[in-house]
Design a protein around this nucleic acid. Structure first.
Lengths: 136, 136
DNA sequence: ATCCACCCGGGACCGTGGTACGGAGTCAAG
DNA sequence: CTTGACTCCGTACCACGGTCCCGGGTGGAT
C-alpha cells in the first residue's frame, strides 16, 4: 500500500475524517493530489504530520503555533538567522513548560507522600507549585 | 491591605475581571464573602489560585482537569487511596507531556545546529519528534 | 447488477473558554 | 457633592477547534 484515502489516514492518525479536511482548510497539511475520481490521495508521511499536530495540541500549543512549528525549516533563500531566532524562542517556551510541569509533578509527589502517611492536607498543596507570580 | 476587590485580584493574577467571575460561575474558585455593598471581597491567596489556573491552561490542561487538580487533597474521611490513584494518574500524564516536550526541544536544537551550518533541510525535522505512532 | 462502505463539497451546528455590553449602584478624591 | 473609576448582574456575543449532515458520486465485493 503506497498511498492512503482520507479515511485510512484519519484512522492511522487517530483523528476523524472531518478533522483532516479541517486541517487542510486551515493550511496545516498540504492539499494532497487527487485520484481521477476526485478522492484525496495521501502519502504515508501524512500520518506523522497529523500525529504531530495532535500531540502538539495536547501540549498546549494552538493550531497557529503548530503551523509555525511545521513551517520551521532551513531553505536556501529563507533567512537562517530568522529560523534560528524563531526556533530559539520556541525552545525557551518549551523549557518554561517543562519547568512548570516539573513543579507540578513534584507537588503531586508530595501529595502522594502525605497520602501514604494519612496526613490530612487542609489546603490544596498543588496550588503553590504554579502559584508564584513570576512572568505574567 | 488585607483583602482585594475583583479588579485588584484580576490585575495581580494577570487576567480580566470577567474571567474571574467566569471561573467563579464554573466552580474553579469559591464564592468569596461580600462587603455590605455587595462587592466581592477576596483574600490574598486567591491570586495564587488564579495564577495556577492560568499556568495550567498554558500547559494544555482543560478547565475540567484543572478543577480536578484543585480538588486533590487529603481529608480525614475522603479516601486516601482514591486521592493517591488520581494523583498517580496525573503524574503519569505530566511525565508524558514532559517527555514529548523534551523530544520537541531536541528536534529544535538539531534544527538550530543545521541552521548554523547553513545546511538546508528539505523536510521539517520537528515532525519526527512527535510523529511516532505510539499511544493513540 | 447491486450492495455497502466510503468519498465529495458546502454549510450548519457545537462545546470550551472567555469577552463585551448595558443600566444601575458604590466609593474615594477633590 | 460631584466626578470618574470601579462594581454589580444579566445577557449577548466571540474565536477556536472541530463535528455533523446533506445530497450525490465512487468502488470493491458478491
Amino acid at each position: 500500500m503506497e498511498s492512503l484515502t482520507i479515511g485510512q489516514l484519519a484512522r492511522r492518525a487517530g483523528v476523524g475524517v472531518e478533522t483532516v479536511r479541517f486541517y487542510e482548510r486551515e493550511g496545516l497539511i498540504p492539499e494532497p493530489p487527487r485520484r481521477p475520481s476526485g478522492y484525496r490521495d495521501y502519502p504515508l508521511e501524512s500520518v506523522a504530520r497529523i500525529v504531530f499536530i495532535r500531540r502538539a495540541k495536547e501540549l498546549g500549543f494552538t493550531l497557529r503555533e503548530i503551523h509555525e512549528l511545521l513551517e520551521l525549516r532551513v531553505t536556501p533563500r529563507r533567512s537562517c538567522a530568522h529560523v534560528k531566532r524563531s526556533a530559539d524562542a520556541k525552545i525557551a517556551d518549551i523549557e518554561g513548560k517543562i519547568a512548570a510541569l516539573r513543579r507540578m509533578r513534584s507537588a503531586l509527589n508530595d501529595l502522594v507522600k502525605a497520602c501514604e502517611k494519612r496526613a490530612p492536607t487542609k489546603e490544596c498543596p498543588i496550588l503553590a507549585s504554579l502559584g508564584d507570580p513570576d512572568g505574567l
